[in-house]
């Protein structure tokens, strides 16, 4: 345990020796895997507790009341953006949206009362545990924004390729093992449910993790920081360029279709 704490501290303070020593371990990929899985499970703990408590309470009426309150709040926030719509049409739209939500809530409530083979509390606990164990396998919406295996391997494979093209010399295990350290600051996401500051904490974790990722790429691939930064950004830049080209292509095709009518 003290070894892990020392590694985490070294990673957070961008200590080159920590990265070099971690990279040199024979089981570096396995350790990286353990780090990502362990951190993702720790970060998912509050959700596990909340889901389990909700499940054990089995209070569908309260859950639906909470959801309805959230829905009404969201609707109230959306109304200022609907000022351009004539008031009678707006009221009609809002009434329909409310009616659909109420139908959904009613269906949810009735389904919650249907019988199951296993007792409801057991089902709820199993569901919460399944969801919790799924956390490490999730994918990030934005590269490196979450400490999951999907973010680590999915983006890493492209960074590895870019780094190699830029003269990097790391083996797969060394590179992936070292870059797994980007997950350490994501431990802050334990507080991501905190009101007001949750989003800020998530952003700090992301930035800190990204800096560690660049450092790990530089150390493992034996590249300069500038080249490592380029290797980390290159896959994202290529993806953005491809998206822009695709968007222009789609817009062009639509333009041709519209013009030909």
């Amino acid at each position: 345990m003290s070894d892990w704490i020392r590694i985490a501290r070294g990673a957070l303070t961008l200590n080159t020796e920590t990265f070099t020593a971690f990279r040199a371990r024979g089981d570096v990929f396995f350790r990286g895997f353990l780090l990502i899985v362990g951190l993702a499970l720790i970060v998912g703990l509050p959700t596990l507790v909340i889901d389990t408590v909700h499940g054990l309470r089995g209070d569908a009426a309260t859950e639906i009341a909470d959801a309805t309150a959230g829905f009404e709040q969201g609707l109230a926030q959306a109304i200022p953006f609907m000022q351009g719509i004539p008031s009678d049409v707006r009221e009609q739209i809002l009434a329909q949206v409310r009616q659909s939500f109420q139908l959904g809530a009613q269906i949810g409530s009735e389904i919650a009362q249907l019988p199951t083979i296993l007792p409801r509390p057991v089902s709820a606990i199993l569901e919460a545990i399944g969801k919790w164990f799924s956390t490490p396998f999730g994918r990030a919406g934005f590269p490196l924004s979450m400490a999951t295996l999907g973010a680590w391997l999915g983006y890493g494979i492209w960074v590895m390729l870019a780094a190699r093209l830029l003269g990097g010399r790391a083996g797969l295990a060394e590179f992936f093992g070292a870059t797994s350290l980007f997950a350490v600051p994501h431990l802050l996401n334990v507080f991501s449910r905190a009101p007001f500051v949750g989003g800020v904490i998530g952003f700090i974790a992301f930035l800190w993790g990204a800096i560690i990722y660049v450092k790990a790429t530089a150390v493992s691939q034996k590249l300069s920081i500038e080249r490592a930064l380029l290797a980390v950004l290159l896959p994202l830049l290529v993806a953005i360029v491809l998206l822009i080209i695709a968007a222009i292509g789609v817009a062009g095709i639509m333009g041709i279709i519209v013009a030909s009518r």
Binding site: I129, S134, F137, G138, R139, L149, L153, I157
Partner: peptide
């Protein structure tokens, strides 16, 4: 064997890395 577990596409990427090896 853990009910409600979702693993997603990460195994495909991992498999690709192993194929390279």
């Amino acid at each position: 064997f853990i009910p409600f577990l979702t693993i997603g596409g990460v195994l495909g990427t991992w498999q690709l890395i192993c194929r390279y090896k």
